[in-house]
Design a protein around this nucleic acid. Structure first.
Length: 334
DNA sequence: GCTATTTCGGCGATTCTTGT
DNA sequence: ACAAGAATCGCCGAAATAGC
């Protein structure tokens, strides 16, 4: 199996969102990629310019950042040929690596818009190296820009950033030098396409946790209330679990819950409703094995949220009273 | 059992950061 | 300038509770 490190550059409407074409918020103008074998040895490179046909002028921010003008793209390929050639170059057995989680979504949007026919696997998994970099070198949550990561690692900065092929090469360099094996189980799942039906729903077991992606629902409510998503089975033995704490929302868009498996103990659940390009709503749920301390953390979160609201209300109430008193005083001395 | 007030919970708006 | 994820704020209707 090969690794394809992919990086894209894209353009957008130069005169504002109201002129954005339906189904194509961004138009890809550069494709850059590096192919590595399973031992992380570089095999090949691929790059091309794409001549834009929808947004034929570059947005000011884009040309500034990329350091190019529209003239540089005149001799570019049309997207369909570029994508066909690129996908043929990718071969049969490969996995994508990108810096951040947006490239594959934009690539598929462009493919759909320009009628490129190609079947990516389902579920469509890839490696988000920005996330894996954070897991290896940081807390797993913060996201570093590519430049910041290269500088942190002390790599030589021998090429301009924000060029598709250069950024792909930088990303490949980080990939080849990091302890990838220690984090390689943490694949990302592309959700440009979501499960069509119940039987297509995704249950990914990452050893320490399980990720579930539901089918699409017409409304946010139906997605949030779905019984399949709200009731959980143990991802180790597949037996139904008992719910210890019912699902509750914090002031964020996350829902939390705690379940218990008779054999494997405590699990914390986190769920979020998202919306897909086709307008359907779907659930992303993560189940993670935990202990009493972890459960206390969830309970604390719930209590903290209540306390937080109570305090807010108290302050609000106090302020109201003070205002009333002030009014009274005013009346007194009038 | 009705009404007013308090508490809860869902969700949009806002902000920060990344990406182009 | 626009997109998307995550975190936070705050509004407002629903549910719970207090007061009668």
């Amino acid at each position: 199996m090969n690794y394809i490190v992919l990086d894209l550059e894209w353009n957008q409407s130069y005169r504002g969102k109201q002129y954005t074409v339906e189904g194509l918020p961004f138009e890809i103008i550069q494709i850059g990629a590096v192919k590595l074998d399973e031992n992380k040895n570089v095999q090949d490179r691929w790059e091309c310019l794409v001549r834009p046909v929808v947004y034929k002028k570059l947005h000011g921010k884009v040309s500034e950042m990329l350091g190019i003008s529209i003239n540089d793209l005149e001799n570019g390929k049309d997207f369909k040929s570029a994508a066909d050639e690129f996908l043929a170059w990718c071969g049969e057995d490969y996995k994508f690596i990108t810096w951040g989680g947006s490239d594959l979504t934009e690539f598929q949007r462009n493919m759909k818009y320009f009628g490129v026919e190609y079947k990516f696997p389902f579920p469509f998994t890839y490696y988000d190296l920005q996330k894996l970099y954070s897991k290896v070198y940081s807390d797993g949550k913060t996201r570093r820009s590519l430049k910041a990561a290269i500088e942190e690692l002390g790599f030589t900065e021998d090429a301009e950033y924000h060029s598709a092929i250069n950024d792909a090469i930088y990303t490949a360099r980080i990939f080849a030098n990091m302890d990838f094996d220690s984090v390689s189980v943490y694949e990302s799942i592309d959700t440009y396409r979501i499960p069509q039906s119940r039987k297509d729903e995704i249950y990914m077991n990452f050893n320490t946790y399980e990720k579930y992606i539901s089918k699409g629902f017409k409304t946010r409510e139906k997605a949030a209330d779905d019984r399949t998503a709200r009731s959980c089975r143990c991802y180790i033995c597949n037996k139904p679990m008992r719910r210890l704490i019912k699902w509750f929302a914090t002031s964020s868009k996350n829902y939390y819950s705690v379940f218990v498996c008779e054999e494997h103990g405590l699990f914390k659940g986190r769920m979020r409703v998202k919306q897909c390009d086709n307008g359907f709503y779907y659930d992303v749920r993560i189940l993670k094995q935990t202990d009493e301390e972890g459960v206390n953390g969830i309970v604390d979160k719930q209590i903290k949220e209540r306390e937080h609201r109570r305090k807010k209300r108290m302050e609000e109430h106090k302020r109201k009273c003070e205002n009333q008193n002030q009014n009274k005083i005013k009346y007194k001395y009038r």
